[in-house]
Design a binder for these strands. Structure first.
Length: 473
RNA sequence: CGGGAAGUAGCACAAUUUGGUAGUGCACAUGGUUUGGGACCAUGAGGUUGCAGGUUCAAAUCCUGUCUUCCCGACCA
């Protein structure tokens, strides 16, 4: 089995990735540089992500809103660190029709200032808190080079913005939402992720603390898959947001924000897919089953219909390929699309009242009695989900190295890349040196299991924490 | 934004060197035979050669500019 439309993963990983995106009908390029077209199959994956996350957000009390897509320049300027972080990549609107605007307007690169501007108006009492808002929208960041899902100028995402009475509450919210992302990626995307804190150098412009979900791709490169920020009172003070507490005293609230993007789809692809095409975890796949009648004959189609009814009853999504393409074509296409289980139904199966099941992750084929089919499918879906997770975890573990000597960092510069887990003194000088010498950026400081067991790998002085370094997308 | 590569039918490419009727394969449409790992036959449709200038009797081909895509770096979710 082979697919000559897809570049081999181990030959050219970058080309392989874009091949998968195109061949599996996930995206297309548009005439607008850096803005990708997400096609129905790609968008269906996003819709599944949205529906799971949106439900989780709402269960935790968040409500969806829709903010403007434009920000007047003066509003963006209010928080210094924030604006300095984003100005290099904002898109500006300078004209309305033929007339030049008196004040430039920026297309939102993120919506902190819009939310703060609004919060100032609606918060006056402790009774107004907490405010738990979220919005699904697109933002614009003028990236210089772009790649489908991983880096585009227009970004489809979700951004949560919350305000709290106390620091403690806001810190809890920050970690609670980080956990939502972690659980989602582990349970639904079958992606093992590192959870941790960003260094000061890497944190969000305007945040006190930035927490991150870091995943390792098949080629050993790190992908930041979601972030959650604790803002403290920085924005609130800059925007003069205040409320009266129970004792009639004016207080400044504490703030968080958190977000994830369609980049997660890129992460899914680069974690699980292979040389035959996409591989999707059952929990997020738009179609869990692909049914392939070998011939379009009545006795076969009867079994297809019978199966459809059973799958409907179990709420298992499926797609039937009843085109008159050859069987081989249909098999190959099902593999390109990454449907977790393929059911082949042909004469040879029906002779014995059986169907053939093929799992996408291992390509293992099995003949199953028609009546046992549904139970086997349910079991396989769970098996596949677990197998994908374990496979990815094993790969990450095999590419994660506990390093103690500076020169050993070189070992990450091979084709397989990987993460270095090292002791660090906490100084940005060492962080910068590692980046300059090896091109490795700090990924995250793990939240638990963080026991220092040696001096700083760079300066040999006393280390204050363990930290992961790696190449990043 | 720096370094490299490339834009010709939906896709992959040829014709460019040496200017002279734009072609092949796949995909697509119709009819037929097929269907257990990317089927076959026949017929057909599809192009201002990325765009804009210039040179020329004549430009896919030469020149200039510009846009886009891909790869490597820097930047970023």
């Amino acid at each position: 089995m082979n697919n000559d439309k897809i570049t081999k993963r181990d030959v050219d990983f970058a080309k392989w990735y874009t091949d998968i995106c195109k061949v599996a009908d996930l995206v297309d390029y548009s005439s607008m540089k850096g803005s990708m077209i997400i096609r129905p199959y790609g968008y269906a994956i996003w819709e599944n992500m949205v529906s799971v996350l949106d439900k989780k957000f709402k269960e935790l009390g968040h409500m969806n809103v829709q903010m403007p897509m434009f920000i007047p320049e003066s509003l963006l300027q209010v928080e210094k660190n924030h604006v300095n972080g984003f100005v290099p990549e904002v898109a500006w609107v300078t004209h309305g029709g033929e007339n030049e605007l008196e004040e430039r307007i920026c297309v939102r690169p993120t919506s902190e200032v819009l939310f703060c501007d609004h919060f100032k108006k609606i918060i006056s009492s402790y009774r107004d808190l907490p405010i738990l808002y979220n919005q699904w929208c697109t933002i614009v960041r003028w990236e210089k080079t772009t790649r489908p899902f991983l880096r585009s100028r227009e970004i489809l995402w979700q951004e949560g913005h919350t305000m709290h009475e106390t620091e403690e509450e806001a810190r809890e919210e920050t970690l609670r939402m980080l956990k939502v992302y972690e659980d989602f990626q582990r349970e639904y995307l079958a992606m093992p992720v590192l959870v941790g804190k960003k260094t000061d150098k890497e944190k969000f412009a305007g945040a006190e603390e930035t927490y991150t979900i870091e995943a390792m791709m098949y080629n050993g490169v790190a992908l930041q898959n979601a972030t959650s920020h604790y803002f403290g009172q920085g924005f609130a003070k800059a925007f003069d947001i205040k409320y009266l507490d129970k004792n009639n005293e004016l207080k400044t609230p504490y703030q968080t924000s958190w977000g994830c993007t369609t980049r997660m789809i890129g992460g899914l692809i680069m974690t699980h897919s292979d040389d035959l095409g996409l591989v999707l975890p059952p929990m997020i796949a738009p179609y869990k089953i692909s049914i392939i009648p070998i011939k379009l004959e009545d006795d076969i189609l009867d079994v297809v219909n019978e199966l459809k009814k059973k799958l409907d009853k179990e709420n298992i999504t499926y797609i039937v390929d009843d085109s008159n393409k050859s069987a081989g074509y249909k098999f190959a296409n099902a593999e390109v699309k990454g449907y977790p289980i393929r059911i082949e139904i042909g004469k040879k199966d029906l002779q014995d009242k059986k169907v053939t099941l093929v799992r996408r992750d291992t390509l293992e084929k099995m003949q199953i009695d028609i009546n046992d089919c549904i139970n086997m499918i349910k079991k396989l879906l769970i098996d596949i989900q677990n197998n994908l997770y374990n496979r990815a975890l094993k790969r990450r573990e095999s590419l994660t190295y506990n390093l103690y000597k500076y020169d050993e960092l070189k070992s990450l510069l091979t084709a397989d890349g990987g993460f270095a887990y090292v002791n660090w003194c906490g100084n940005v000088e060492c962080e910068n040196k590692i980046k300059d010498d090896f091109g490795l950026k700090s990924r995250c400081i793990p939240l638990d299991d963080n026991k220092v067991d040696g001096p700083c790998i760079c300066c040999n002085k006393k280390a204050t924490t363990k930290i992961y370094f790696g190449k990043q997308y």
